[in-house]
Design a binder for these strands. Structure first.
Lengths: 161, 161
DNA sequence: TATTGTTATACTCTATAACTATA
DNA sequence: TATAGTTATAGAGTATAACAATA
């Protein structure tokens, strides 16, 4: 009755990633609400901590979000002094976005508060496995795609299967 | 300049998971569209392949989606004969949901078509690392939470940090 | 003219409430 | 009365188009 494919090259992580991310996000929402944050805010703060001082468009490219929605997202964070927008002296059209000290502090508090939610969602994994997962996710998200500036390439017609 | 926490117990995978899942989903959408599927459909089909013959409510619990949205989701899949709804003889209120042969076939085709998207998103990882990631995701999503029937517990006030 | 950021708006996804049928 | 599924509908999330400032 094993209908699942056994060849590792047939394994697709997409659906599992979607499923697990949803479960994590649902629990994160209730944990973050008292801190005045939403999961999306945490993703932005995390990216800005890893590499701040970038334009809104570069942030949009990294997060793969539409630039128009970055505006509202940063408005939220700026209203609570978690990030700062400064006009770039080199190109006055650009806003240079950076994490404030308060932002770094709030992010740490949020990560601390999320420990329980993460323990619940990743309950089936041992501590060393969770660390492995974290490392894989970190490396995957800091790859060339996520750091590119305005990549947005269309998916090539890869029918190699 | 290393502002990131170094203690592994401080590592939180939530934001990275969210970020990576989004990138995967955006690429999956364009790949799945010609097959008449959306990322959400693929998650449901994947869960049903792993363990079909369950009620809509159990499916909702596993996917952690509201039961009302499961209706439309299954309507889509049923319209294309990818799943079947049968009244349970034991409790005629229930619909027993199962993957059809066409559904299993379409799922395989979709997974095949997604190879390119996955290669792009997981480009920073080696093949063995991708297999490790797949295994971790599979085990995490088949844990006691995802298989529970109508768990839906509120997040406990875990302030152990 | 092209680009950055902004606003207004339409579209999709998700959740809440009320209904039908079964138990 | 309580539960499984359905429908209708309002709220949140996201994308598209037009505009202002700057290059």
């Amino acid at each position: 009755m094993s209908a699942a494919p056994l060849d590792p090259s047939e394994h697709r992580s997409g659906a599992l990633l979607d499923h697990l991310a949803r479960r994590m996000r649902l629990r994160s929402e209730s944990v973050l609400a008292p801190l005045g944050l939403r999961p999306r805010h945490l993703v932005a703060l995390t990216v800005l901590r890893a590499g701040g001082g970038i334009s809104q468009q570069a942030l949009a490219s990294t997060l793969e979000m539409d630039g128009t929605n970055i505006v509202g997202l940063l408005n939220d964070l700026e209203a609570e002094r978690l990030i700062e927008r400064r006009r770039s002296p080199e190109d006055r059209r650009r806003h240079v976005v950076e994490l404030t000290d308060d932002g770094a502090k709030r992010l740490s508090e949020a990560e601390c508060a999320l420990a329980g939610a993460e323990n619940e969602v990743l309950g089936a994994l041992e501590p060393t496995e969770r660390e492995t997962l974290y490392e894989l996710l970190r490396r995957a998200t800091t790859g060339p795609i996520s750091c590119g500036e305005a990549v947005r390439e269309e998916t090539p017609p890869d029918t190699s299967c």
